[in-house]
Design a protein around this nucleic acid. Sequence first.
DNA 1: ATCAGGAATGTAACCGGTTACATTATAAAG
DNA 2: CTTTATAATGTAACCGGTTACATTCCTGAT
Lengths: 333, 333
Amino acid sequence: MTVTIRDVSKKSGYSVATVSRVINDSDLVTEETKKKVGQVIKDLGFVPNNTARGLSTRKSNTIGMIVPNISNPFFGELIKGAEEAAGKNGFNIIILNSSYNNEKTIKDIMILKSRNVDGIIMSSVDFDESIYNTLVENGIPFVLTGPVLSNHKINYVSVDNLEGAKKAIKHLIELGHERIGYMSGDYASYLNKLRLQGYREALEANNIKIDKELVFKENIEKNIDKFMKMKSEDKPTAIFTFNDYMALDYMEKLEEKGIKIPEDVAVVGFDNIKMASYYSIGLTTVDNRQEEFGEKSFELLQDIIKGKTEETHQIITKPKLIIRKTCGAKSKK
Amino acid sequence: MTVTIRDVSKKSGYSVATVSRVINDSDLVTEETKKKVGQVIKDLGFVPNNTARGLSTRKSNTIGMIVPNISNPFFGELIKGAEEAAGKNGFNIIILNSSYNNEKTIKDIMILKSRNVDGIIMSSVDFDESIYNTLVENGIPFVLTGPVLSNHKINYVSVDNLEGAKKAIKHLIELGHERIGYMSGDYASYLNKLRLQGYREALEANNIKIDKELVFKENIEKNIDKFMKMKSEDKPTAIFTFNDYMALDYMEKLEEKGIKIPEDVAVVGFDNIKMASYYSIGLTTVDNRQEEFGEKSFELLQDIIKGKTEETHQIITKPKLIIRKTCGAKSKK
DNA sequence: ATCAGGAATGTAACCGGTTACATTATAAAG
DNA sequence: CTTTATAATGTAACCGGTTACATTCCTGAT
């Protein structure tokens, strides 16, 4: 039923090898034969079977992508960028949802291995030793997205988190704030550490001494409690949050308590998730351009797969501050 | 380097056929041999090569999924549901982004064909004849998500749009509204038609005569203009929008003009996108449960692939009204 | 005219599984 | 103790491509 290379061979009078060469646009074959065979291919509606191809070449032109949560647009954009770049290069993407679970991630890696993917783009928040080992032992090329805390030299693409945090803080300082708080949750990720460090460095660079009381590292409820109990003159006049999701959460809680944003306290987030841009929120934030990320991750992975590069690469993109309403900056309108 | 079935065969002393049977848990093989061979498989770390498997079985255990925009959480949730259901059944998903482009969609279908996917879940907004033909001519099982306007009997999973619209309108009527408007954009999709019809039927069922002036079918700007120019006694006191994205857009524009929601006009959307749930928005809307959709789509597709069903199926899920703030209903809090 | 060497094409093994069919072992029946 | 049916295992062809190596065909040099 399905048309194979041998059908094309028979009908065209050329051998399967030649047909194969035509398919792969080899320069071992004349322009004339290319035309003739090409015509037969069209006539028969022949489409090369990628599975068969993959078996003999040991390549699948497929890359795996493991993300914690597909429905989170943050990852959605990442996937979109990667998918587009992949498509342009004849690759397709198999998506797996790890649900933030490392055991599941390892299973996923093995699934991808059995499918002979050429490489994996990992967006695992908590990249640990067991994941690293699984990837390396199975000889699977991979690229990580996001900042990576690891003793191993690893390929990754990440935004410059330090720089992003600094831009946010610098902007707040320029708006006249001196008591700037940092609010995260109580889960101490490496990412959190980096952004907090950026916060500190920016303050120091502007000769503002760091007040430990302004670094809120408990869970959201406790942080809000602490904030509410502070004397007004002690309260921060601006808050930089670990990420946009948290910023939204904090804003919700603060507004419930009657705190006005940005009048009483300015807020700046990180990530620039879609929701941040919605008018009634207008969250000022640091854009880390997920889509571009996805694209770069794929490109790096492709270079690795094709053996264009031997060393590991750490690609750090520059973030951009998106000024909206919650920081209290005057809009140009 | 990679361990193959023949390595397992050699080391275990059994033939490749028996090893293959063990892998596939065939009951043609003794429990004892299963154990023995199983041990060798473990020892060698053998993982069956899915590509080779796919070549001989002509199955890939892969399904393709074509969506218009991966980064839109609406589709993200759909993908998530499908991915999870697929994973449980040993399937993986290749994602393709059609960017709302039908030509791209057809190319994507051919790519998926060359990859021998077992079936496709399509979430094409504008499912036309050419797409239908491509799928059928290539003998690819497929399931559509969303309502389908087609002369052909097609497998699809959709929410009951009529019912959803009716629930929304009924709720507004119960809140005391009599002048209820319908606002869409000027792109007349089948989906739009269905929801508009639900709106009409609900009004009629409640003996409210339909006022053409309250159906806004121009583009958003024009509709807003028209609304603003209406005499206050003519203005609708509540608006049902085609979907949540539009609801947000309309709300933004209306609030810019000083119209308060829900005091001046109540708003109800459709889809229950994530943003709708955010506190400062609190959009009352109709939930069509995308994730469940993805799951059901996969399950239906699987039945078709496995030949469990001959006829076509139209699965219609029941939507649920999510009452938040924009409809003006008193909150229970 | 003869030959070397490169270009174009062909032959057939191979990738790593599956499975129809063949064979052997095992047990029940005559 | 055959015969026969059945269960367990083995042999080898096959899925549809790729590609190393072999072959044929030209062209230009001697």
